[in-house]
């Protein structure tokens, strides 16, 4: 469903090329729930932006739902949903309901399907109390539920979320998590999310990609991630340990080969 082959992106900063993502190769199958971890500035967002067609890669290639994101951006937009935790894709001054109606037109979702899907999402995400409220007046938790709804109205096969739980309180976080888990389990939607919240990872992700210095530093299950640093208690400590040690030695690129392989790490 998602595939990258030695994908990379450099940015020119004051005349010199700085690599943000280098030589990234991984595969996500349909129906997987994958979490993408990494310290700030590691290249997670750049990766997500290349997979959603926002950024054009400097080299390598990506395929999402069988499409090349930067070359077939509009076709891809109909097949994937994208949520940014840090900003809304909704129209600030419009009531939530009107934003959804605009989304329906832009994605050319037919009226019946839209009505049905919106009714489902309104119920599950409990949107009805604030459907008529302008987006700018929503609380962060409400806005996030609205954003998730907007990203799912066209029934995408893949949902990509960039820090969806950032800034949410415990209750709102729990709601978002249980919704994503159900979406993945019941509809089979492939989910890829980036996060700094290891609660997201532990509760949701069957598979973790750790990106560091723009490279894939680990690819495996949460249990395998834990086992990497056996003397650490919590998953937080494990990840902190990995982040810290990685700043001393820049990692090489490991490759994940089909399933049964032991996880690799170079942190």
């Amino acid at each position: 469903m998602i595939e990258t082959i030695s994908l990379g992106r450099d940015f020119k900063v004051r005349g010199t090329l700085v690599p943000a993502v280098r030589d990234l190769t991984f595969r996500v199958e349909a129906g997987e729930f994958v979490g993408c971890l990494g310290p700030n500035g590691a290249g997670k967002s750049t990766t997500i932006k290349m997979l959603t067609g926002i950024l054009t890669p400097s080299y390598g290639r990506a395929l999402v739902a069988g499409l090349d994101p930067s070359k077939q951006r509009k076709a891809l937009a109909r097949r994937i949903g994208v949520v940014f935790g840090q900003r809304t894709t909704l129209w600030w001054d419009l009531p939530l309901r009107d934003s959804f109606e605009l989304v329906r037109h832009l994605y050319k979702v037919d009226r019946d399907r839209f009505g049905k899907r919106l009714a489902e999402l309104t119920e599950v995400l409990e949107l009805s109390p604030f459907l008529r409220t302008p987006v700018r007046q929503l609380s962060l938790g409400q806005r996030m539920r609205g954003d998730i709804t907007a990203a799912l109205l066209h029934d995408p096969e893949v949902l990509v979320l960039d820090e969806p739980t950032i800034g949410l309180d415990v209750v709102a976080k729990a709601e978002v998590r249980s919704f994503l888990a159900r979406l993945n389990a019941e509809r089979g939607t492939t989910v890829l999310l980036t996060t700094h919240d290891l609660g997201d990872v532990e509760r949701l992700c069957r598979r973790v990609l750790l990106i560091d210095h723009g490279r894939l530093a680990f690819d495996g299950s949460v249990a395998e991630l834990r086992a990497l640093v056996p003397d650490q208690e919590s998953i937080e400590d494990v990840v902190a340990h990995l982040y810290l040690s990685s700043t001393r030695a820049a990692p090489r690129t490991p490759r994940r080969t089909p399933d049964a392989d032991p996880p690799t790490v170079t942190a």
Partner: peptide, 14 residues
């Protein structure tokens, strides 16, 4: 600067 251009790029309209 506001990041709103990103959101335009993920919609199926030019």
């Amino acid at each position: 600067r506001a990041g709103t251009f990103d959101t335009m790029l993920i919609r199926p309209v030019s």
